[in-house]
Design a protein around this nucleic acid. Structure first.
Length: 518
RNA sequence: CGGGGUGUAGCGCAGUUGGUAGCGCGCGUCGUUCGGGACGACGAGGUCGUGGGUUCGAGUCCCGCCACUCCGACCA
């Protein structure tokens, strides 16, 4: 269980260690299946907290959850020309519906060939707008605001755990509106939801902006994005919100009779956040000891490690720890969602349950591990606060409280712990965000000279480069070829200044962020 | 699909000129331990990726096949 391997850290090689904590992908001796993901219970508890928070925010902005089919008729995908072009190369295709026994094994039954192949959804625009066409007939049916939690399959050539897996989990929102203005407002409203989610819950600072034409979603009018910087100075697109214009409405005939009696096509939007955000969370905060989780999203927020020498002392310590856990749980109200199995009451007993990992406050009662091993394990799992409770503490009427983010230790009187825990968790939450934001600010570069631009991208931590750009896809493509940096977004809050395109020198007031990206 | 690399216990690996399968970690039982990754004793665990060939004898040599993996082209 606990490996003594020194953890190597940071974004570029994080996958070497986090698998132990969150995920394994050793399902089979089959590359395709390995590209999918197995999420261990601890990692899934983090995902469930993601869902709990984001789902609540999505509903608070007026959306409802629904579910649509996994399998999409091939013909649907080809209706929107640029959409099919964007996704055709990475679709898993269902061609048969039956196997049959043969020579002691099974083979695909050639008799069971489908007349039309089915595509495993790489995204659900097509099947959802096909459905919308039957749901919308009047302006009174609009806006139609729907969200779906689902799994997605994209047959990528190269996979990377969490960042690019063959199968991934996400939420995808799809909305239909009467006017472009309403659709625009929806797009920016949801991008703001994502910003708040990333910054206030995951403590990941993000930059909101507009994608270039070549980086926008296949079939969209325009794409907005939140871009985050990882600890190695590379960019990660953490969430996107698209205005799909009337493209999909036209090909799937999502039409409505407006108040003026005219039959009009809807304006649609879509937006999504995936398990990739888990990768962002890991890479943004983790250190040499393992995960560092922001308190608001951590499945286990506080772990109490009782320390004893013999059976008699063990009973005494466990009792004291259980009592403390109860008090701390009560003091935790309002600090983010509580994970599965984790109501305050459940949390107190969770430690006693064999194998139980979860609960907002966890008491580590295991006695086949040394204290040191327990410390290392919870640090690796990123639990924000650790409370050490031993004979010494009990006699002195105090405990040792250790912060995961900076490793600092402090002694707290036993009767004050519960009252101070939520304040400490908030301090950790804030400190993580500040640290990440300071790092990003320190690695933002405004560069107007192409030689300096190329040199910066060769640095160990290349960071984000803000430069003027003429807007041409040709310059964009050449820069990518020469430096491997792609355009990330045109930040909405970036001041317009006049200057020359970093590549071709054309006068322009447009500036964009370039970065190496995951 | 192009260019490398690797297949031996759950994981990581060793295995010399061909001679009955080894190590570390992990796992199980018992005991001593326990304040930052403890120790001892005993134990369980293997069609050496696969098919053929050479040989008295193949993990080892020869040929074929398969799989995985890393680097490039694709992407949330």
């Amino acid at each position: 269980m606990s490996s003594k391997k020194k953890i190597t850290t940071r974004a570029e090689d994080y996958s070497k260690w986090y698998l132990d904590v969150i995920e394994v992908a050793d399902l089979a001796e089959n590359a395709a299946v390995k590209g999918c993901m197995v999420i261990k219970p601890y990692g899934y508890a983090i995902w469930e907290n993601f869902q709990a928070v984001l789902d609540r925010m999505i509903k608070e902005t007026g959306h409802q959850n629904a579910y649509f089919p996994l399998l999409i008729p091939k013909s649907f995908l080809s209706r929107e020309a640029s959409h099919v072009e964007g996704f055709a190369k990475e679709c898993a295709v269902v061609t048969h519906y039956r196997l049959k026994a043969q020579d002691g094994g099974v083979v695909v039954d050639p008799e069971a060939k489908l007349t039309e192949e089915l595509i495993i959804r790489p995204t659900s625009e097509t099947i959802i707008y096909d459905t919308f066409s039957r749901w919308v007939s009047s302006w009174r049916d609009l806006p139609l605001l729907v969200n779906q939690w689902a799994n997605i399959v994209r047959w990528e050539m190269r996979t990377r755990p969490f960042l690019r897996t063959t199968e991934f989990l996400w939420q995808e929102g799809h909305t239909a509106h009467a006017t472009k203005e309403e659709a625009d407002a929806e797009v920016s409203k949801m991008l703001e939801v994502y910003r708040v989610f990333a910054e206030e819950y995951l403590a990941i600072p993000v930059i909101k902006g507009l994608k270039s034409e070549s980086e926008k979603f296949a079939g969209a009018l325009y794409t907005t994005t939140i871009e985050a910087m990882m600890q190695d100075g590379k960019a990660l697109q953490a969430g996107t919100s698209h205005n799909l214009g009337q493209h999909f409405a036209e090909v799937f005939e999502v039409k409505f009779a407006d108040q003026d009696g005219q039959l009009k096509y809807c304006w649609t939007t879509s937006w999504g956040v995936s398990t990739r955000m888990m990768g962002a969370l890991i890479m943004c905060h983790s250190d040499d000891k393992g995960l560092v989780l922001p308190p608001k999203i951590a499945p286990v927020k506080v772990v109490i490690v009782p320390i004893w020498k013999d059976e008699a002392k063990k009973a005494q310590m466990l009792e004291a720890a259980a009592k403390l856990a109860g008090e701390v749980s009560a003091g935790l109200a309002g600090v983010g969602p509580v994970s599965v199995g984790g109501g305050a009451g459940a949390a107190v007993t969770a430690g006693a349950a064999p194998g139980g990992l979860l609960g907002a406050v966890k008491v580590d009662t295991r006695d086949h591990l040394t204290v040191g091993e327990k410390f290392y394990e919870w640090e690796k799992k990123g639990v924000p606060l650790r409370i050490e409770l031993g004979e010494r503490e009990l006699e002195a009427g105090q405990v040792v409280v250790v912060r995961r983010d900076d490793g600092s230790k402090q002694n707290l009187p036993l009767d004050q712990v519960a009252g101070q825990v939520s304040g400490l968790l908030e301090a950790i939450q804030t400190a993580l965000f500040e640290k990440a934001r300071n790092f990003r600010e320190a690695n933002m570069h405004e560069i107007e000279d192409y030689t300096a631009f190329k040199k910066q991208l060769e640095a160990d931590v290349p960071g984000f480069i803000v430069s003027h750009w003429c807007g041409s896809a040709v310059c964009e493509e050449q820069i990518k070829e020469e430096t491997k940096a792609s355009t990330r977004c045109m930040p909405f809050d970036l001041e317009k200044t006049s200057g020359k395109c970093i590549k071709c020198g054309t006068e322009t007031d447009r500036r964009i962020i370039f970065a190496k990206a995951y």
